[in-house]
C-alpha cells in the first residue's frame, strides 16, 4: 500500500494557495458524543478545522473515523455536543441541514454515482435543482470540472461504463460542481485497484493546492505526509493523537498510534 502512496507525488506540491486561515473557523466540533443504540461510537470529540486546512483522519477499522465525518454533514446524527459548520449549528432543523450540505461536498468509498443518469446529468442535477442554476450554465461548469479531473470525453456515458478510478473522479467533480467550501473524503481510494489510486489522489492533491478545506479519512499515508496539515489518529471512538504529519509519523507518542503505524508502514 505504501508503495503506491509513496510514488503518487513525484512533482513538487504547489504551496502558493495552501495558506491556512488563523481566524476563520470552517468546522467546529465541541464535546460531541454519538451512540448507535447503546453503543457509544464517538466519545468526546473536539475538533476545530480552520479554513484552508487539510486534515487526514487515520485509525483502525471501527474506530469511528467515517462516522465522525458523516456527522459533519449530518448523514449521521449526534446526540450530545455541538457541530458548527460554516457558522451554522447542526440540529434537527432540516432547513439548516440542507444549508450545510449545500456547502459541504462529500466523496464516498463506493462513489455512489447515480447509475440511471449520464455523467453530465450526475454533475448538473444538484446545481440545477438545489442551487437553481440554469441548465446551460450548470453544464458548462460540469464540463469545466470534468476537464479538471481529466475525463471530459466520458460526459455522455453512464457510470456503469467507467472504471472505478474514473467513477471516483466523477464523484469528486460532482461535489465540486456545487462549489463547496469544504470537502469530506470518506476512504475515497479504498475500493480502487492499486493502479487507479494514483489518478484519484492527484485530483485530491490539486484540490489541496487550490486551498480547499478538506477532511480525508484515508489509509494513504503518503498522501497524508505530503498534503495534510494535521493527522488525527482515532481509536475506539476517540481522538487518540493529533499532530503535524512529520511529527506524527516520525515520533508517535501514544502506544496505540505506534502499534498502528508499525502495522501499516513496513
Amino acid at each position: 500500500m505504501s508503495q503506491v502512496s509513496e510514488t503518487i507525488v513525484e512533482r513538487e506540491i504547489d504551496t502558493r494557495h495552501m495558506q491556512v486561515s488563523t481566524t476563520e473557523v470552517a468546522i467546529d466540533v465541541v464535546n460531541m458524543h454519538k451512540w448507535y443504540g447503546d453503543f457509544h461510537v464517538l466519545r468526546d470529540i473536539n475538533l476545530r478545522v480552520m479554513k484552508g486546512e487539510r486534515i487526514v483522519i487515520a485509525g483502525p477499522s471501527g474506530s469511528g473515523k467515517s462516522t465522525l465525518i458523516r456527522c459533519i454533514n449530518r448523514l449521521e446524527e449526534h446526540q450530545e455536543g455541538q457541530i458548527i459548520v460554516n457558522g451554522t449549528e447542526l440540529t434537527a432543523d432540516l432547513k439548516r441541514i440542507d444549508e450545510v450540505r449545500r456547502e459541504v461536498g462529500m466523496v464516498f468509498q463506493h462513489f455512489n454515482l447515480f447509475p440511471h443518469l449520464t455523467i453530465l446529468q450526475n454533475l448538473t442535477l444538484a446545481p440545477i435543482w438545489v442551487r437553481g442554476i440554469p441548465k446551460a450554465e450548470a453544464e458548462a461548469t460540469a464540463m469545466h470540472y470534468l476537464e479538471r479531473v481529466k475525463i471530459p470525453e466520458q460526459a455522455n456515458k453512464f457510470p456503469g461504463q467507467l472504471s472505478g478510478g474514473q467513477q471516483q473522479r466523477v464523484a469528486i467533480a460532482r461535489s465540486l460542481c456545487m462549489q463547496p467550501k469544504i470537502m469530506l473524503f470518506d476512504e475515497p481510494t479504498s475500493a480502487l485497484d492499486p493502479e487507479m489510486v494514483k489518478e484519484v489522489l492527484e485530483v485530491m492533491i490539486s484540490l489541496a493546492e487550490e486551498g480547499m478545506t478538506m477532511i480525508c479519512v484515508t489509509h494513504e499515508m503518503g498522501f497524508a505526509r505530503q498534503v495534510a496539515n494535521r493527522v488525527i489518529f482515532m481509536d475506539q471512538g476517540q481522538i487518540i493523537e493529533e499532530n503535524e504529519p512529520e511529527e506524527f509519523f516520525s515520533n508517535p507518542q501514544h502506544e496505540r498510534t505506534k502499534l498502528f503505524l508499525s502495522q501499516i508502514l513496513h
Binding site: N73, L75, G105, L125, A126, V130
Partner: peptide, 21 residues
C-alpha cells in the same frame, strides 16, 4: 443506502431525492 446518502450530501431535499434519484 449510498444512493440516498449521495443525494442527501448534495443538498437535495426529500422530494427531490425521491423524484430524481
Amino acid at each position: 443506502r449510498g444512493q440516498y446518502e449521495a443525494a442527501s450530501a448534495l443538498g437535495l431535499g426529500y422530494w427531490k431525492r425521491m423524484w430524481f434519484i
